[in-house]
């Protein structure tokens, strides 16, 4: 894998080469987790230094796409694709962002199917409006 890895006995943590590892350490963040064929990953369009949304995340559409670019890259590092997502939880900072988030997800997953998802309104870090947690099952070489 072309990523920096560290792990616990049953898990490999995948950290993108571009990630700010020093800042992640200061915040106790561990990156995506691959345990067997299960990948657990989260995504938000945040700058860990300023704890604010990255400049490119102007609209909720932008922000959702940035998150899923990150999720897609993480899945690729683990040998999977967006199609391997089994379940996702979408967190939005305000109900008003739900429709736009869902519409963008349908575009990202077009022509479908979209994975099972749960949507919650919660407080997110900084001025982020959307955040995602995904669980994926990565196909194994032996076909399991």
């Amino acid at each position: 894998m072309s990523v920096e890895e560290h792990g616990s006995p049953g898990t490999t943590f995948l950290v993108a080469p571009t990630a700010d590892r020093e800042r992640m350490g200061k915040l106790g963040l561990g990156g995506a987790a691959l345990a067997g064929d299960r990948l657990f990953a989260g995504a938000m369009a945040i700058d860990l230094t300023t704890l604010s949304r990255v400049a490119d995340a102007k609209s909720v559409v932008d922000e959702t796409r940035i998150c899923f670019d990150s999720v897609g890259a993480t899945l690729a590092r683990a040998g999977g694709t967006l199609r391997d997502i089994a379940k996702m939880t979408c967190y939005v900072s305000d109900r008003e962002h739900i429709a736009e988030t869902w519409r963008t997800l349908e575009e990202i997953f077009a022509p479908g199917p979209c994975p099972k998802r749960l949507t919650l309104v919660a407080g997110l870090a900084g001025d982020c409006r959307v955040e995602f947690e995904i669980m994926a099952v990565i196909p194994q070489e032996d076909g399991r």
Binding site: T11, F13, G25, G28, G31, G42
Partner: peptide, 10 residues
């Protein structure tokens, strides 16, 4: 550590 994958919400 190691620190697990984490998300934090209010």
């Amino acid at each position: 550590g190691p620190y697990p994958s984490r998300a934090l919400f209010v």
